[in-house]
């Protein structure tokens, strides 16, 4: 016989190690970053003594709004495009026969076998004015010979989508695989077209997978640094590049920390929204249930 207290203790015992890990390597470092943002900088790249708010005022740098805006829209657009691509992909993989399903899943995972940096450099080669993709598009009269594919926001968007698409497909696939497809038949039976069944039954049914996928793209995209650094150029700079620049070039750690803290908060907000959303159905109907009782 186990009492509720026993069960509670065992739960703590099981989750304890990971909690300690999170505390040591995530919570404390994040708090340090937040703290450094309120420290003065020293001319030689160190952190001065005492506390100051000057760094926060420095954030009103006139260049920042444009960069933050670009970071946000690139992240949002790449998330939306990834979802638009991942939902049909996840659906098809989930509906495929077992054999082809495994092959399709392999195809999604295969890019991970090649180093991330090498794949981005490959894009640089493809998008280069003399590169294969550019030449092919010019040959097909799909773009003018003068157009630049590299070193702009579009290049950053493209490579972010390319990089994070698998992270969007996998959770959607997992949700689509568990989805009860007799519900689609039920909705068709009740007069819904294929499209309406998709939007009113399938999408709500896999909504958790979609939200997870959205986070899996949006959060890394917000913090992207390597991708805009390699294919973005000055016109495709994102907030991640600014943080790196403040750290390595300016050696102004408090300023970099302030930007990083800003980014962390920006990431936490959508995360919180999702958490609340995912818990919502439960609380929601509890409330309704109560109303009935009353």
């Amino acid at each position: 016989m186990t009492t509720a207290a026993d069960k509670k203790n065992r739960e703590w015992l099981i989750t304890g190690p990971s909690l300690i890990w999170l505390l040591l390597f995530f919570v404390i470092p994040t708090l340090i970053v937040f703290a450094i943002a309120f420290k003065p900088s020293t001319p030689f790249g160190g952190i001065g003594a005492g506390w100051t708010l000057t760094t926060l005022f420095d954030l009103s740098n006139p260049n920042y709004p444009a960069i933050i805006w670009r970071t946000v829209w690139i992240s949002l657009v790449s998330t939306i495009i990834c979802l638009l691509l991942a939902v049909p992909c996840g659906y098809c993989i989930a509906r495929a026969r077992r054999r082809s399903r495994n092959i399709l899943l392999m195809l999604v995972i295969v890019p991970f076998w090649t180093n991330f940096l090498i794949r981005i450099f490959a894009w640089k080669v493809l998008l280069h004015p003399e590169g294969l993709l550019k030449q092919a598009l010019v040959f097909l009269h799909l773009c003018s010979p003068d157009a630049t594919l590299l070193y702009n926001s579009a290049a950053v968007l493209l490579v972010i989508i390319y990089t994070y698409l698998p992270f969007a497909i996998l959770p959607i696939y997992a949700a689509a695989e568990k989805f009860d497809y007799s519900l689609i038949e039920a909705s068709r039976d009740l007069g819904a077209t294929r499209f309406r069944s998709f939007t009113h039954v399938f999408l709500p049914g896999i909504s958790r997978g979609v939200w997870t996928a959205a986070l899996m793209v949006f959060i890394p995209a917000l913090g992207a640094y390597v991708i805009p650094d390699i294919v973005g150029g000055p016109a495709g700079e994102m907030i991640g590049n600014k943080i790196a620049q403040r750290t390595f070039v300016d050696r102004n750690l408090p300023h970099a920390s302030a930007l990083a803290a800003l980014l962390t908060l920006a990431v936490m907000i959508p995360l919180m929204i999702t958490l609340v959303r995912n818990r919502l159905p439960e609380t929601d109907h509890r409330k309704k249930g109560k109303r009935i009782v009353e």
Binding site: D180, S182, L183, E185, A186, S187, R188, D189, L190, G191, A192, T193, V201, P204, G205, S207, P281
Partner: peptide, 18 residues
């Protein structure tokens, strides 16, 4: 199916959980 004036009660009910 959506153009038939026929409706089905499914074995597992297939109620929409959302």
């Amino acid at each position: 199916p959506h153009r038939r004036k026929v409706n089905t009660v499914f074995q597992n009910y297939a109620l929409f959980p959302h």
